[in-house]
């Protein structure tokens, strides 16, 4: 900006040059479009969201500051909100604990198998990646037919009479199965790329030493793709912590609220029927956010320190 005014003297003689910003740099003009959108639609909502967690708010009137009250209610009181937080958070963590290992191991196995370069490898790669292109609502609708107690192929084909989404542990199983089916594509591609990057001489040297396939996997393959494993474990955990659509549409949080995850409570309290409880709902979201951040930091720390 200063540069423009200092040059204003020869603007008339140099108009064309100035217009084209010849030799002059205005980085801010390139940054500004993103920074404006980023500030209004990410940064301000983020800060405002943390502030709201310390208020009583109905989304309409002015938020009333209440200090740590929301957090005290959520963490220590004997209230419905406390129950919502503890059970919702526990169900979320339970889902993360069950699903993440599968979301890492299944694609890793697939990548190793595909890496032996059998015929049609490209076709199978495309096939396993395919579900990750679909929305959760479409995925749940397709799987709800598979697990439909009356007309689903699982029951009709095998002559079973199982209410899959209405009884535990099957309700969690259906959610985990469709999640694994839905999400492994990305990790598989990442592992494939990583495996391709391992120099072949490592394996040849191990062959000379007479190492078994398993030994080679443990001592050559895994250490070589450690970075990618770390990356996918962290991103997959974060992604699964945000679970919402699967239980909402597959089990509707049931049976008896046993698959109701925290995001469903956050959404219900803020935007459900009746008066909005945006303050306490925001506090729940902040707690969930803190959990996600802590877990991913711990993972990064643990996995980085192995060297």
């Amino acid at each position: 900006m200063v540069d423009i005014s200092s040059k204003s003297g020869n603007v008339s003689t140099n108009r064309k040059k100035t217009w084209h910003l010849h030799g002059k740099s205005f980085p801010i003009l390139y940054l500004l479009p993103h920074l404006i959108v980023f500030t209004i639609f990410f940064l301000i909502p983020l800060i405002f969201g943390i502030y709201i967690a310390f208020t009583k708010w109905d989304l309409v009137r002015t938020p009333v500051f209440v200090g740590w009250d929301n957090f005290k209610t959520l963490l220590f009181s004997h209230s419905i909100f406390h129950d919502q937080l503890t059970s919702g958070l526990w169900h979320t963590i339970l889902f993360v604990l069950i699903s993440v290992p599968f979301c890492i191991l299944v694609p890793l196995l697939l990548a190793v198998v595909l890496n032996t370069k059998p015929i049609f490898a490209k076709f199978f790669q495309g096939l396993f990646y395919l579900p990750s292109l679909f929305s959760i609502s479409a995925v749940v609708i397709v799987w709800s037919l598979i697990f439909n107690p009356n007309y689903g192929p699982l029951n009709t084909l095998f002559h079973l009479d199982q209410v899959w989404t209405g009884t535990q542990p099957w309700a969690w199983m259906t959610i985990v199965i469709l999640t694994v089916w839905w999400t492994i594509g990305g990790n598989m591609i990442i592992y494939q790329a990583a495996l391709n990057g391992i120099p072949q001489d490592y394996y040849e040297a191990a062959d000379i030493d007479g190492a078994s396939r398993w030994k080679k996997f443990i001592h050559i393959t895994l250490p070589s793709i450690r970075g990618q494993l770390l990356f996918t474990i962290v991103t997959t955990t974060i992604a699964q912590f945000n679970i919402y659509g699967q239980p909402l549409m597959m089990t509707n949080g049931g049976p008896n609220g046993s698959t109701t995850v925290l995001m469903m409570n956050v959404q219900q309290n803020a935007f459900g029927s009746g008066q909005s409880l945006a303050g306490i709902s925001s506090a729940m979201a902040v707690i969930l956010g803190i959990c996600i951040t802590i877990v991913s930091m711990v993972q990064l720390f643990l996995l980085r320190n192995k060297d």
């Binding site: 990410f42 909502p45 983020l46 405002f48 969201g49 956050v266 979201a285 956010g289 951040t293």
Partner: peptide, 24 residues
């Protein structure tokens, strides 16, 4: 500094800004 700042905001999960974003 600006680039690192932008990258660091990626660690905040989107759940935290959904309610204010709705208000905006």
């Amino acid at each position: 500094v600006l680039f690192m700042f932008l990258l660091s905001t990626m660690m905040f999960p989107p759940v935290m800004n959904i309610i204010p974003l709705y208000k905006i």
